[in-house]
Simulated assay, not measured.
Amino acid sequence: MKSLITPHTRHSAALLSLVLAMSFFSCEPEKEVQRVRFGLISDVHLPTMHDSEVRIRAFVDSMEIAQPDFLIELGDLVTPAPQYQSLYDIWDGYLGEKYSVIGNHEMDGGYGLEQVLEHRKLERSYYHFEKNGFQFLVLDGNDKRTPDEKGYRNYIGAEQQAWLRETLSRVQGPVVIFSHQSIGPLGAMHNGEEIRQILETHNASSPESPVIACFNGHLHYDDARQVNGIWYVHVNSAAYFWMGEEYEHIRYSEEVDEGFRWIKYTAPYRDPLFAVVEISSDGEIIIHGKQSEYVGPSPWDLGFPETDREAIRPAISDRVLHVK
């Protein structure tokens, strides 16, 4: 019997097989890209600035329009002092999801950590929450290195380190860390290198749930740098760069200076600074920041040292960061 299979039918059969194979694979569900958006502000220092109310109000109003998944302030917002409650109420009045980090200035005026936690409605100063498949860890850099240590602190102690290791061991999904003091290479954390080692050890053993970024305030810097696969992002102050008493300069008026005696030691930003951050599970971090200018002379006009000049600017820079 003559074969019914011809070169043409063989070609058609092969093409049909290819089409069927492509159809099969195209039916496999693609891995869904997860995304999260959050509003971010740091170091408002209510009420160091005479226009603090304007600055925190501008942030809250903008976030009510942007509608991110949550807000977070990275510390040094305000103490629990009753005379500042009306300023804090602007932040607290935001009806969406919001979180706080404890800064070193939250305890100014003789307030203790327990009073600050009660004021912020927090059970403790370090904690974990989840949003859209992302894991967020809030750390407290105000632990004591020694029982009798006085003044401002920049340390994460053994108990908190144990919590950090345990929490990292059980979370599922990309991890983002918030702190006030920096645990990155450009920072003031006394044991930052030790904390970074904990994060890097976790990433080596749990590549499916890596720490991808750490956001901090405190230094009033605008900076982002990647170290061993983790981004360390400095979020600039909403209000000013602190210079110190040797760079005293009257920026506004004698009347303002009389009521707000710390302003003359700062380089204030004309506009309030804050950001919206978007993170996707395919490894992209987008920071939508704000640009401003100094009120009066810049730090360099007053002879401020050139150290870290690239990070000292009146801005939170727009950035697109890629996770390796």
Results as ranks from 00 to 15, higher is better:
Leu137Trp: 02
Val101Thr: 11
Tyr94Asn: 05
Phe136Arg: 02
Glu97Ile: 04
His105Tyr: 10
Gly109His: 09
Gln115Leu: 05
Gln115Met: 07
Pro147Asp: 13
Asp148Ala: 14
Gly96Arg: 02
Val138Ala: 10
Asn104Ser: 07
Glu149Met: 12
Leu117Gly: 08
Tyr111Thr: 01
Glu130Lys: 12
Val138Asp: 00
Asp148Trp: 11
Leu113Trp: 01
Phe134Asp: 00
Thr146Phe: 15
Val101Arg: 00
Lys98Asp: 04
Ile102His: 08
Arg145Gln: 14
Asn104Pro: 10
Leu95His: 12
Ser86Asp: 15
Glu97Arg: 08
Glu106Phe: 03
Gly93Tyr: 02
Gln115Tyr: 02
Glu130Ser: 14
Lys121Gln: 15
Arg124Asn: 13
Arg124Thr: 12
Tyr126His: 13
Tyr127Glu: 02
Ile102Arg: 07
Gly93Val: 04
Ile90Thr: 09
Asn104Asp: 14
Met107Ser: 13
Asp148Met: 14
Gly112Ala: 11
Val101Met: 00
Tyr152Lys: 14
Tyr126Arg: 09
His119Lys: 07
Met107Ile: 14
Glu130Pro: 04
Gly112Lys: 10
Tyr126Trp: 11
Gly133His: 09
Val116Glu: 00
Lys98His: 10
Gly112Arg: 13
Glu118Lys: 12
Gly110Phe: 02
Lys144Tyr: 08
Glu114Gly: 03
Gly93Trp: 11
Tyr152His: 15
Asp92Ala: 13
Lys144Cys: 08
Glu123Gly: 10
Glu114Leu: 11
Gly103Asp: 00
His128Asp: 09
Glu106Cys: 10
Gly96Tyr: 04
Val138Arg: 01
Glu97Cys: 06
Arg124Ser: 05
Phe136Ile: 03
Lys98Thr: 07
Thr146Gln: 12
His119Thr: 11
Asp143Met: 11
Trp91Asn: 01
Gly96Ala: 06
Asp108Pro: 09
Asp143Leu: 06
Tyr111Ala: 06
Glu106Ser: 10
Phe134Cys: 05
Val138Cys: 03
Lys150Arg: 14
Gly110Val: 09
Leu117Asp: 00
Pro147Trp: 12
Phe134Ile: 01
Thr146Asp: 11
Phe136Gln: 04
Gly112Cys: 07
Lys131Arg: 14
Gly141Pro: 01
Leu95Pro: 01
Lys131Thr: 02
His105Thr: 10
Leu87Gly: 05
Gly141His: 00
Val138Met: 06
Leu122Arg: 02
Tyr127Thr: 07
Leu137Asp: 01
Asn142Ala: 02
Asn142Thr: 15
Asp140Phe: 01
Arg145Thr: 13
Val116Leu: 01
Pro147Leu: 14
Gln115Asn: 10
Asn132Ala: 13
